[in-house]
Nucleic acid binder design. Structure first.
Length: 332
DNA sequence: TAGGCCATCTGGTCCT
DNA sequence: AGGACCAGATGGCCTA
């Protein structure tokens, strides 16, 4: 199937769906006619409504003409300019340019997000964090590092991990936990391009082989929130040191207290321990590769989330979202 | 099939 | 007038 949205290479010409609709070109990728609606965004319908074919527009104009004249004397403000053909052309050209700019703006935004992903404590090219999770993790990372810098938190502590994982979906939490676990372990068997980038915090739990608990609470659903604990700790720290990160200053002006998404609490006891039969992807056949920490982490990430949630998934983070294409990590 | 994520188009608003 | 930014709408892709 043809992908309607393809990020163009530099210098590649952007073909507008407007041109497309006019039948100027066959399709963006040069292939045979792809329906205009493949450009999404209700483009076809919206365009028909707002710009549409010249004929449709002229007809509409004619139809509105009477009404306009009738109301013209009563209406305030500048007189609406008649949509001449020339104006339509200009409008169309402007719209096409604006679309291109918007595309490139969004690409720039995505590039920046990609840069952000690349410096996250858990970075993998094969398992991309979603935009929202990237931002949340970044925020947590900054907070965690701030606390570490200010001496209030060891990068090897559970609290660091908790701060890092606060408000993240469980799959992302698993991934982060797994990455931190790998940090002190070997990366044998990993492809360079797939290596999970592990930054400052080494294994927060002292290099345990079987990472069984990220140190997150496991209360009954809805009765406990790590944010509370962090908040309390921060409050306590502020009393003694008075230099908590802004986020934890309850009465601080500016950044409001962070209300994480309604992610169900995590289960300490079983968060990273698969409880069901191994997936067909793990352990791997010996002739393909030998199991490594990465495999275990990926396997755990794949298999743990659907058995450890104690409450309903929040609507933003169903368990399947974050570990995308995870099974393809070692496939050629 | 549902739901999340994503890219894109679009019109509105603000600014230069 | 035109560009940047934003949010809403829409439809495709992907996974469970």
């Amino acid at each position: 199937m043809i992908k309607p949205y393809v990020r163009l290479a530099e210098g590649e010409e952007v073909i507008s769906p407007l041109q497309w609709m006019d039948g100027d070109v066959s399709s963006p990728d040069g292939s045979a006619s792809v329906p205009a609606h493949h450009y999404g965004a209700g483009v076809a319908s919206q365009q028909n409504r707002e710009m549409g074919s010249e004929d449709a527009e002229e007809d509409e104009e004619d139809a509105d003409e009477g009404l306009e004249d009738e109301n013209e004397s009563r209406r305030r403000g500048p007189k609406k300019k008649r949509m001449t053909k020339a104006r339509q052309e200009r409008f169309r050209a402007r719209r096409i340019k604006a679309n291109a700019r918007e595309r490139s703006r969004m690409h720039g935004l995505n590039d920046a997000l990609e840069n952000l992903r690349s410096i996250m404590p858990c970075h993998s090219k094969t398992q991309k964090l979603s935009k929202i999770e990237t931002l949340r993790l970044a925020r947590n990372y900054i907070c965690a590092l701030s606390e570490a810098l200010e001496g209030g938190l060891s990068t090897e502590s559970r609290a660091f991990m908790e701060t890092l994982c606060k408000g993240l979906s469980q799959p992302t939490t698993n991934l982060v936990a797994g990455c931190l676990q790998i940090g002190s372990g070997s990366s044998a068997g990993m492809r360079p391009e797939d290596r999970l980038g592990v930054r400052p915090p080494p294994n927060p739990l002292g290099g345990m082989v079987g990472y069984t608990s990220p140190g997150l609470p496991s209360p009954p659903y809805g009765t406990y929130d790590t944010a509370h604990m962090l908040h309390l700790r921060a409050m306590k720290g502020r009393q003694s040191e008075n230099h908590s990160p802004p986020e934890y200053n309850a009465g601080s002006v500016g950044t409001p207290p962070y209300d994480g998404p309604p992610t169900p609490p995590l289960s300490i006891s079983s968060n990273m321990v698969p409880k069901r039969e191994p997936s067909p992807h793990y352990p791997p056949p010996p002739h393909q590769y030998s199991p490594s920490n990465v495999d275990q982490v990926l396997y755990q990430t794949q298999t743990s989330y659907d058995v450890h949630l104690e409450g309903p998934y929040d609507s933003y983070h169903p368990p399947h979202m974050v570990p995308r294409q995870i099974t393809s990590v070692y496939r050629d």
